[in-house]
Simulated assay, not measured.
Amino acid sequence: MQVRLNSNVHVIDTSVILLRKAVYEDMVTVPEVLEEVRDESSRLYLEVIDLRVEEAREEFIKRVRRAAEATGDVYKLSETDMKLIAKALELGAVIVTDDYAIQNVAKKLGLRFEEIIQRGIEKEFKWIRVCRGCGRKTRYEICEVCGSETRLKRVVKR
């Protein structure tokens, strides 16, 4: 399914608020982002910016989860992150974040993203689990062959 992009709407991550970079005309976030903002000055900043707060719809969260599983970012994304991407997908919006896992899944879903301070990702990548003992690829935290712990390894897609 093709995503219809709306470059006027920006879905913002917590870091946009913490860094005082909310400079977009039409900004949206999810309620979970507000829960992550705890310091007093950032709470005051929230009161002066024009920010819509909307729940992410379950059908879009499921699509994001499937994309995150495909890229392996499911191991790195929080529920808040997945809901942010889902809201951007639902609105066809630009997502504003420095989080590489969010950017990677957004790219997989055909969404645009803007970085805040860090340079954004240039290529899509995938995370795989590799056993520390025998070197096999697996989906589990403990290798089902030798019982060793696994680690995440990034593979750049060509």
Rank of each mutant, 00 (worst) to 15 (best):
Y140E: 15
C134D: 06
R119E: 14
R129L: 11
T80E: 01
I12H: 07
G92I: 01
N104A: 06
E35K: 15
T150Q: 06
H10L: 05
S15T: 12
E144G: 08
M27I: 04
E32M: 10
E90I: 03
K21R: 15
I121T: 03
V156L: 15
D50L: 11
R43N: 08
K21V: 07
S41G: 08
N104T: 05
D26M: 11
A67K: 00
R136F: 06
I117V: 15
M27Q: 10
N8H: 11
T29R: 00
V96Q: 02
N104H: 06
E141K: 14
D73N: 09
M1S: 14
E54Q: 13
V9Q: 08
E122H: 11
G92S: 02
Y24K: 08
G147V: 03
V30H: 06
A67I: 00
A93T: 05
E124T: 12
F60W: 12
T29S: 10
E124G: 11
E124M: 12
D39K: 09
Q118V: 12
R154M: 14
K137R: 14
V74E: 11
G72P: 04
G147K: 06
I49H: 08
K123V: 10
Q103D: 07
R132P: 02
V94E: 02
E55H: 13
V9P: 01
L44D: 15
T138L: 09
C143E: 04
E47K: 15
E40T: 13
I95H: 01
D50M: 09
R4D: 12
Q103I: 04
V30R: 01
E149I: 08
L34H: 06
K157I: 14
I116T: 07
C134P: 04
P31H: 07
C134H: 04
D81K: 03
T80K: 04
V23F: 13
R52F: 10
Q118C: 10
K107A: 10
T80W: 01
S41C: 08
L46N: 07
L5W: 01
V9A: 10
Q118P: 03
G147E: 05
S78L: 04
L91T: 01
C146G: 03
R65G: 00
R4L: 12
K153E: 15
T150I: 06
E144P: 14
K21N: 10
G72F: 01
I17Y: 05
E59G: 08
